[in-house]
Design a protein around this nucleic acid. Structure first.
Length: 522
RNA sequence: GGCGAAGUAGCUCAGCUGGUUAGAGCGGUGGAAUCAUAAUCCAUAGGUCGGGGGUUCAAGUCCCUCCUUCGCUACCA
């Protein structure tokens, strides 16, 4: 039985259409999930939408829609995005589903049974306009001493009945857990922030609201709905069966890793583990907070008008080009910068010029000089074995090690080095010249290249699944070879001896044109 | 204000526990080649490693200080 691997993205809040940040997270998580499958693990990959809470309600009202309808519509965009970007999810969950409500109420009851919930009053400066509480320190003084929110709206001291979670009780347990599990929070910068935050002391958390009703009803307090985060985080377990004692649930929980944005690290590294501890459930093994994508080094925002639609980018440059760019160019865990020029430059240099051209020139030579039949190997010389060793080590060791560590950009850097080595090898061996002087040697050279290219395509499957698969299809590489364990096995000769014949090769990594200047997305 | 991260070639960045002439990709320059998506290969570019001070036989790599940028500093999500 293969080892389980459970991975999730954050559950997106769909009060708007998906933006590039959602796409980035989905793509990165997908690459990891695909990699783990190619390592032979039994993967569960979950994403979804977190549809409760005040903002959904407000957004729907502003649009003159029923909240439910807005949720349905918005959620569908996220699902569509997954489909378009080749995100290999196993399950798309919605917090509005009946099962999820049941799960959220189940975890609530567990917190209650643990004695960690109590009814009290939540008091604070409340802005009716914003429908939000603000801390005293955030307020400014307006005319006539009127206190104002950061948005400039008037606030009033308000008292609301609320259920509280004894977060303070978990201060020490959390700190101990962080200490005992140094990889629980990554990258380190996020861990440091979290540890400092918890060391600074935890206050109990208000976990129910009475000011609106778009949410999961609190068991026994029907006028309360659960705090959105409590319900949203529960998705990670409801998606695989909780509270039912299913085989899937037993197999996949605790999750191997939650991939989330750096802005919601606290919810996942403080609240979520505390809830789980209280509920008597195991904690996820890791929470990884990735960085943000910046547009030409600037934060994207609606007011700046530089928000990018990921669907548009995928259409403009191609899904795999977009995926490759994001995973190669952005160091996972750090912020990254995006621009059309950067995508075009990177993709052309790496995919079109280096790898795509390598495949094209090699397959063309085989097609023309060998009638498409895979050339025979007649003894490797030192150059051949050096290349095979380098590519073999890269594909079987270096790249998996980096991917395993969620360092996709470094894995791809190794990948490119191997691609460079192949191109250098082609130039030195010059098979087009050998055609006349030593046809047998030419065959060996082309066979060597064929093997290397196939291995490199396999290593690229998690990143650019569509085009890598097409390339492997063109090359006739059997499906059972397309994983990290079998890539280095002895599959070439059997394939060649099966008289597999390649067709005229078709370029799979086109050079991109710079999009016409139409100013920035303003 | 407090805590933390970062400032390395034109650009984007690697440089772990201090140790030969500071690295890569892209760009630029000069060659080679012509199988291939005008793609490739080879060579090269002399950057006070933010400023200053210190520890050490030896510092981009440790300590202090200053400058700059950024993140966190709880209940919208």
């Amino acid at each position: 039985m293969s080892e389980p691997f459970y991975i999730t993205t954050a559950i997106a809040y769909p009060n708007g259409k998906p933006h590039i940040g959602h796409a980035y997270e989905a793509i990165a998580t997908d690459a990891i999930a695909r990699f783990q499958r190619l390592m032979g693990r039994d993967v569960r990959f979950v994403t979804g939408t977190d549809e409760h809470g005040l903002k959904m309600d407000q957004t729907a009202r502003a649009a003159g829609k029923a909240t439910r309808d807005l949720a349905d519509e918005m959620s569908s965009y996220f699902k569509e995005m997954c489909h378009t970007l080749d995100i290999s999810i196993d399950h798309f969950c919605r917090t509005t589903s009946d099962h999820h409500h049941k799960a959220s109420q189940a975890i609530w009851k567990r917190l209650e049974a643990a004695g960690d919930l109590y009814l009290d009053r939540y008091e604070g400066w409340y802005s009716v306009r914003d429908e939000a509480y603000y801390d005293e320190t955030e307020l400014t003084e307006g005319e006539g001493g009127q206190k104002l929110s950061p948005q400039g709206t008037p606030v009033e001291w308000t008292v609301e009945e609320s259920w509280f979670f004894r977060l303070s009780k978990y201060e020490q347990p959390l700190l101990e857990y962080y200490g005992a599990h140094p990889d629980f929070i990554r990258p380190d910068s996020r861990k440091n922030e979290t540890v400092k935050f918890v060391e600074g002391g935890l206050k109990d958390l208000s976990v129910s609201r009475t000011s609106f009703d778009w949410g999961v009803k609190v068991p026994g307090s029907e006028n309360h709905v659960m705090y959105v985060w409590l319900d949203a985080l529960t998705t990670y377990i409801s998606a695989i069966g909780f509270p039912d004692d299913t085989e899937e649930w037993r197999k996949f929980w605790p999750a191997n890793v939650h991939i989330i944005g750096k802005d919601i690290v606290r919810f996942h590294t403080v609240y979520w583990p505390a809830f789980l501890m209280s509920a008597g459930l195991p904690l996820p093994k890791q929470v990884f907070g990735h960085g943000f994508l910046l547009s030409r080094g600037e934060k994207m925002s609606k007011s700046l008008g530089n928000v990018v639609d990921p669907m548009q980018l995928a259409e403009l440059f191609g899904v795999d080009a977009l995926r490759y760019f994001l995973l190669r160019e952005v160091s996972f865990g750090q912020d990254g910068s995006y621009s059309p020029e950067a995508i075009v430059t990177r993709v052309n240099a790496d995919l079109a010029n280096s790898f795509g051209n390598l495949a094209q020139r090699t397959l063309s030579l085989i097609f023309k000089n060998c009638e498409g039949y895979l050339p025979a190997i007649r003894g490797h010389n030192d150059d051949d074995t050096a290349l095979l060793d380098l590519v073999g080590a890269t594909v079987s060791q270096h790249i998996p090690a980096h991917y395993e560590d969620l360092a996709m950009s470094q894995g791809l850097e190794s990948w490119m080095q191997a691609v460079f080595a192949c191109n250098a090898y082609v130039d030195v061996q010059a098979p087009w010249a050998l055609k006349k002087t030593d046809p047998e040697r030419m065959e060996t050279v082309l066979a060597t290249l064929f093997i290397c290219i196939a291995q490199l395509a396999i290593a690229a499957l998690p990143i650019i699944p569509g085009s890598a698969t097409k390339l492997l299809d063109q090359m006739g590489v059997p499906l059972d070879v397309r994983n990290f364990h079998a890539a280095g096995s002895h599959w070439y000769s059997p394939l060649a001896e099966s008289n597999y014949q390649i067709a005229q090769p078709v370029g799979l990594f086109p050079r991109l044109e710079m999009p016409a200047e139409e100013g920035t997305a303003a």
